[in-house]
Design a protein around this nucleic acid. Structure first.
Lengths: 137, 137
DNA sequence: CAATTGGTTAGCCATGGAGCTAACTATAGG
DNA sequence: CCTATAGTTAGCTCCATGGCTAACCAATTG
């Protein structure tokens, strides 16, 4: 009854480490042996190997050993899988934004029709900005 | 003055937790109070608050308190920032793929032109790539 | 004002992650 | 066969993370 981390858990936590992100970035440029990968880092090999192992169990990296050298390569599918998560969130976010904007437009129309009564734009005290949000800020 | 984690470190490690991902997903649909957010989770409030705090220091979530209720909302910029990282990696990956494909095409042409003369480049059986590793391939 | 509600602070504990050294295995090369 | 190379295993620290309880504000509300 071990923990059974979800794939996303593993992928994100793998990418949370700068060393491991660097490895992934390196592997984007093509496969490499453990030694080649480890070379730029000031770190004992066993420590480094742990990172490789984390990347492997996360599914981001595949490796196979031939002779005495282990060659690692990226598994682009997993990376893309994580990317998808962002895109889904963004889709939801943007849908909401659209709804919100529609709502604001409706408010505006209502006000215009009411004939410029009062300046009802609330000001956010902490940011000093109006609540009107068009694109990003 | 200690660790000075990079923003990406913080964002990814924030997203590595399923509770926190759920919070982010919930906030994509619109802002909410801490209580509302905490409701679906079987977790003591202080524990839950820690998650909120992690999300805040990662920059993914903003919050402000008015009266006794704290309202949280998503900071889409940070989310998009993380998404960018993936896109950059994918760009590099795809560029490499293109180069690789071009390389394969060249091999093919060479072979055709040579009329099946000699196989001077050793081919690694497992990867299908030459052993000659100068720079990238 | 008293009680409730919504968060917050403080402090404890168990686990896991990231690093190390030392010693070992197994291939490649001379 | 001997040695150097490339990883691997074992086992140890240290500290960050995720969870808890208990006690504590500070606004609302009756």
């Amino acid at each position: 009854m071990a923990n059974q981390l979800s794939r996303l858990d593993q992928v994100f936590s793998a990418l949370a480490d700068p060393t491991r992100r660097a490895i992934v970035m390196r592997l984007c440029a093509g496969e490499a042996s453990v030694g080649e990968l480890a070379d730029p880092f000031e770190m004992a090999l066993p420590s480094f190997m742990k990172h490789i192992h984390v990347l492997e169990t996360s599914g981001l990296v595949l490796s196979e050993k031939s002779g005495r050298v282990r060659t690692c390569r990226l598994s682009p599918d997993t990376l893309v899988g994580a990317e998808d998560w962002f895109q889904q969130q963004r889709a939801i976010w943007e849908a909401r934004l659209d709804r919100f904007e529609a709502y604001v437009m409706k408010l505006k129309k209502d006000k215009e029709r009411a004939g410029a009564k009062r300046p009802s734009n609330k000001i956010n005290r902490t940011t000093g900005k109006t609540t009107k949000r068009k694109g990003s800020e």
